[in-house]
Design a protein around this nucleic acid. Structure first.
Lengths: 201, 201
DNA sequence: GTCTATACACCGATAGAC
DNA sequence: GTCTATCGGTGTATAGAC
C-alpha cells in the first residue's frame, strides 16, 4: 500500500477532482483518472485498495482544504461576507455537489460529507451569532436564529450556483441583493470597504 | 422503433425512475433497467435509439406529471401550501435532483430540465403574486417579489430534502416553522383548516 | 414485439516482472 | 514504486431468428 500524501498519491486525488469537476462522478474511474494525470491505471491499486477508498480519501482532502478556507474566511475582517464568497465559488460548489451525489452510493463518502456539512454549519453559526451580538442596531434579520441563517445562506448559495450552471437567471439578481443586504446588516462596514459581490451575472 | 406510450415503453421508463430513485444516475443502464422490470436488455433498443434518448423521454414524462401535479396544487383551496407540499415530497425531489445531475452530462436532458424549472417557477410566481394581492394585511414577506419568493421556497425545499436524506437535521425545525409562517401569512385560512405540514422530523 | 447471439469498449481488481 | 499482462464482469449497441 503506497504512502499517504506522497507525490503520486496526491496526483491521483488531483486527477479525481478534475474528473469530478469536468465530467461528474459517473466518469470517476481508475482508468480515466490515470489517463488524465499520465500514469498507468493499475497503479491506482498500489495507493488505494478500492475505488471507494480513493473517493473517501479525495473528499477527506477536499473537506480539509475547504474547512481551512472557510476558517480563514471567518478570521478575516468581514467573516460573513468572506464566507459567502467562498460558498459561492462555482468550481468548489460543483465538486461538493458531486460528492453529495456520491454520498448516496458510498457509506464512506456519506459519513465524510455529513461530517463536513455539520462542521461548516457549526463554524458558520458561531460567526453569525457573534456578528449579531456585535451589530449596533439590530435589523429584522435577527428574528432568525444563527443556525437558521447559516442554513439559508448555504442553501441559497448552492441553488444559485446550480441554476447558474444550467443557465437559469430568474430572480437571481434580486436574491443576490437580498443576501448582500443581509450581510451588510450584520457587517455594516463591509459595504464601503469592499466592492459589491458580483458572482452571477 | 417501438411505439411511444405502449406498455413496454412505459415499463422501461418506470424502471428508469426506480433505478434513479434507488441507486442514482450512475446505475441507469439498459441492463439494470431491463433486469428490474423483467425484460431483456436488448429490447431497450427497440424502443429507444440510445440511452440518452431514453433519459430524455423519462424526464419528459416525469416533467409532464410533475407540472400537472403542481398545477393541480395551485388550483386547490390553498395553492401555496399545496405547492410546498408537492415540492417537499422526498421521492420526487430525489428523482428531479438526479436528473439535474444528469443535465450536466446530456444536452437533451439539460434542455428539458431547464424548461421544467422555468415553467414551474412561472406558475409558482403567478400564484404567489395572486396571494399577495388577496392577502388582507400585508406581512413583511411582501417586501420580496413573487419570483424571489418562488426561488427561495423551492431552494429551501430542495435543501431540506437533500439534508434529510443524509440524516442532517440542524435548523430544519426552525426553517420549517418559518416557511409555515410565511405560507400562513399569504394564505391565512389554511392554518385552521389543515393540519400542520410535518414532512421532516 | 420479443428473443438469442454477439460485437467491442470499458470497468475494478489481481499477479508478478523489473 | 511502476510496469506488463490478464481476469471476469458490465456497458452500449447491432443483426437476425421467430
Amino acid at each position: 500500500m503506497g504512502p499517504v500524501n506522497s507525490a503520486t498519491w496526491s496526483l491521483l486525488l488531483d486527477g479525481a477532482e478534475i474528473i469530478l469537476r469536468e465530467e461528474g462522478y459517473a466518469s470517476l474511474t481508475s482508468r480515466r483518472i490515470a489517463e488524465r494525470v499520465g500514469i498507468k491505471q493499475q497503479l491506482t491499486y498500489y495507493y488505494f485498495r478500492t475505488m471507494d477508498e480513493l473517493m473517501v480519501a479525495a473528499f477527506r482532502r477536499l473537506s480539509k482544504r475547504e474547512l481551512a478556507r472557510l476558517q480563514s474566511a471567518l478570521s478575516s475582517d468581514f467573516p460573513l461576507h468572506e464566507f459567502w464568497s467562498v460558498c459561492s465559488n462555482a468550481g468548489d460548489a460543483r465538486l461538493i455537489s458531486e460528492f453529495m451525489a456520491l454520498a448516496h452510493r458510498s457509506e464512506g463518502v456519506k459519513r465524510e460529507v455529513v461530517d463536513f456539512i455539520e462542521r461548516s454549519r457549526r463554524m458558520h453559526t458561531r460567526a453569525i451569532a457573534k456578528s449579531i451580538k456585535n451589530a449596533r442596531k439590530k435589523s429584522g434579520i435577527a428574528a432568525l436564529s444563527p443556525v437558521a441563517l447559516a442554513f439559508l445562506t448555504t442553501s441559497i448559495a448552492l441553488a444559485l450556483t446550480r441554476e447558474s450552471a444550467l443557465g437559469i437567471r430568474s430572480a437571481h439578481r434580486e436574491i443576490l441583493d437580498l443576501v448582500k443586504q443581509g450581510l451588510s446588516a450584520l457587517e455594516p462596514d463591509a459595504a464601503q470597504t469592499k466592492e459589491p459581490i458580483r458572482r452571477f451575472r
